[in-house]
Computed example of a mutant assay.
Amino acid sequence: MKINTALLFLLVSAFVFAQETISFEKATFNHILSKAKKENKIIFLDAYAEWCGPCKLMEKNIFPKDEVKQFYNANFINARIDMEKGEGRDIQKKYGVYSYPTYLFLNGDGEVVYKGMGYLEAPDFLQLGSQAKMIGEGGGGKERFEKGETDPEFLLNTAKLNANIDPEFAKKVSERYFQVRKKKAFTQDELAMLFYFLRSENDPNYKVFVNEKPEILNLLPESSYNQFHTQIKLNTIAENAVDKSKKTINEAKFLDDASKLMSVEDAENYLKILKLNAYRSLENWSGYEKAALENYKNGDGFDAKELMTAAFVFAEKISNPTSLKQAVIWTEKALQQGETPDGNYILARLHLKSGNKEAAKKYATQAVKLAKEKGMDASVPEKLLLEIK
């Protein structure tokens, strides 16, 4: 049989050049997980939003590059899912995706192996994939660390690789690094690692911070060192004042200890922030309610995002009518700084919880309208509208 070589070339070329970008799976998330488990491969998930500019630039400029698509197609099962549509909403909640684009590297059980975010040039995007591949294949260092590895270069690199995906493990690695580190001049990498994981005087690396001060000052102004030291002491005071088991804060102890580092007024302001953060973290909602009312009062002088965060917690967790009215005031003050779908949605939730269906419907409708005008997902306020009706 005579072979038409020209036709064959065209067919082969069409096949090769048809794959113009990373090959993304067209399947459900569960199917992708099953495939990854079956093939023992890592999933690269591009978590994006339709309105996201950097997401579009990655799609246009980076994913089609030969070196990028070849590496990602060879090493991962690739998926690209809109976090504001369909099953993407559940994925967004499960993995806490709040910035776009976010790059999730998952194993077949859906566990996060590595993570990145933002617009990346091709070399950085390839490095991200290489690190994810190494960790996914067991190169993240946990097994080697647990066997007692003390090689400084290994420890430094392992701490870097795991800083975002497993900070508790990375912190332990950094502590061993400074235990075995030989006396020498500090490098920028060492200083960055020390400062990144050091939170209080109760941390093992605090001794390094104090004992190696002369070396640290070769890289850092003494004023910056002292400022960071004061913050460490404050963190320690806050840590010692919070009783996690009882979900309470010993305010008198905090103020007594903190006022030795700063003015009483500054200590009181710091305590307000501590109460908001700690009570929310501890899920002590009555404590959070009291702290928010005390801190925000009528909402004047506060950032819109901060006010809406508190108002949203009230919409979700607080039922006292007087407190809900105050949260309405905060949200209205926030919207004066710029109208947003989120602000109107929160207002709708607050009014509905207070029993004012007419106002709730008004703000939910406005939230839907604004979301659609901005090209954002309107399904959440739309769902609330259905509840109101």
Results as ranks from 00 to 15, higher is better:
45 L>P: 01
47 A>V: 05
66 D>N: 13
43 I>G: 07
67 E>H: 08
49 A>L: 10
44 F>T: 02
74 A>Q: 08
66 D>Y: 15
53 G>V: 15
72 Y>R: 02
65 K>G: 09
71 F>K: 10
36 A>I: 06
51 W>R: 05
76 F>S: 02
44 F>C: 03
44 F>L: 05
74 A>I: 06
53 G>C: 11
62 I>N: 03
65 K>H: 05
72 Y>L: 00
46 D>G: 10
62 I>H: 03
41 K>T: 10
39 E>N: 15
54 P>S: 00
53 G>R: 14
40 N>V: 12
43 I>C: 11
60 K>G: 12
64 P>W: 01
42 I>R: 07
58 M>H: 05
65 K>E: 06
72 Y>I: 00
64 P>F: 01
58 M>F: 04
50 E>Q: 13
64 P>Y: 04
36 A>E: 04
60 K>N: 14
41 K>Y: 07
38 K>D: 15
52 C>S: 08
56 K>R: 14
53 G>D: 14
42 I>A: 04
60 K>Y: 15
51 W>L: 06
43 I>D: 09
47 A>L: 09
62 I>W: 05
47 A>K: 06
75 N>S: 04
67 E>Q: 10
45 L>H: 09
53 G>Y: 12
76 F>W: 04
73 N>W: 13
37 K>P: 01
71 F>L: 14
74 A>R: 09
63 F>K: 01
69 K>L: 08
52 C>I: 10
41 K>V: 06
70 Q>Y: 15
75 N>G: 01
62 I>Y: 03
45 L>D: 06
65 K>P: 08
66 D>P: 10
46 D>A: 07
45 L>W: 10
53 G>A: 14
62 I>R: 03
39 E>Y: 11
45 L>F: 10
52 C>E: 08
56 K>D: 10
55 C>E: 04
54 P>T: 02
54 P>M: 05
67 E>I: 06
